Simulated assay, not measured.
Amino acid sequence: MKLPRISGEEAIKALVKAGWSVERQRGSHVVLYKEGTGIVVVPLHRELDRGTLRAIIKQSGMTVKEFAELL
């Protein structure tokens, strides 16, 4: 499945819907935490690079399809 072009903010909103919570922010990077899964760091860029987005999705333990449904 092709990855959508989204911003860091949109990625964070989708992760929050999936049960992640914003732990902290340092500069332009937001750290999200989920019990039993770990942490994911999302940069607050206007548009995330496809490789960066794919890495975020992989770290979250979701598939691209599952993530896209949350957008």
Rank of each mutant, 00 (worst) to 15 (best):
M1V: 13
M1Q: 14
K2N: 14
L3E: 11
L3A: 11
L3K: 11
P4T: 07
P4G: 10
R5C: 06
I6R: 08
I6A: 08
S7V: 06
S7Q: 05
S7L: 10
G8F: 01
G8K: 00
G8E: 01
E9R: 10
E10C: 00
E10K: 00
A11W: 09
A11Y: 08
K13L: 12
K13E: 10
A14C: 01
L15C: 06
L15H: 03
L15W: 05
L15V: 07
V16E: 15
V16M: 13
K17S: 04
A18H: 05
A18G: 08
G19D: 03
G19N: 04
W20P: 00
W20M: 01
W20H: 01
W20A: 00
S21M: 14
V22D: 08
V22E: 14
E23Y: 07
R24K: 15
R24H: 12
R24F: 11
Q25E: 10
Q25V: 09
Q25T: 06
R26W: 12
G27K: 12
G27Q: 12
G27I: 09
S28A: 15
H29K: 12
H29G: 06
H29Y: 08
V31A: 01
L32H: 04
L32N: 07
Y33R: 07
K34P: 04
E35R: 10
E35I: 02
G36W: 08
G36H: 05
G36K: 08
T37G: 03
T37D: 07
T37R: 11
T37F: 07
T37Y: 10
G38Q: 02
G38C: 03
G38P: 05
I39D: 09
I39Q: 13
I39R: 15
I39F: 14
I39L: 13
I39P: 07
V40D: 01
V40L: 03
V40K: 00
V40H: 00
V41R: 10
V41C: 12
V42D: 00
P43D: 05
P43T: 06
P43A: 06
L44C: 06
H45Y: 13
H45R: 13
R46W: 10
R46G: 09
L48G: 02
L48W: 03
L48E: 01
D49C: 05
D49L: 08
D49R: 12
R50Y: 13
R50A: 15
R50P: 15
G51Q: 14
G51K: 14
G51M: 14
G51L: 14
T52I: 13
L53E: 04
R54A: 15
R54I: 12
A55V: 11
A55C: 12
A55M: 12
A55D: 14
I56S: 08
I57M: 04
K58S: 15
K58I: 09
K58H: 14
Q59A: 13
Q59H: 10
S60W: 00
S60R: 00
G61C: 02
G61E: 02
T63S: 13
T63V: 04
V64E: 03
V64G: 03
V64R: 01
V64L: 05
K65T: 15
K65E: 15
K65L: 15
E66R: 01
F67W: 01
A68I: 04
A68K: 09
A68E: 06
A68L: 05
E69M: 08
E69L: 06
E69W: 02
E69K: 13
L70E: 07
L70R: 02
L70C: 09
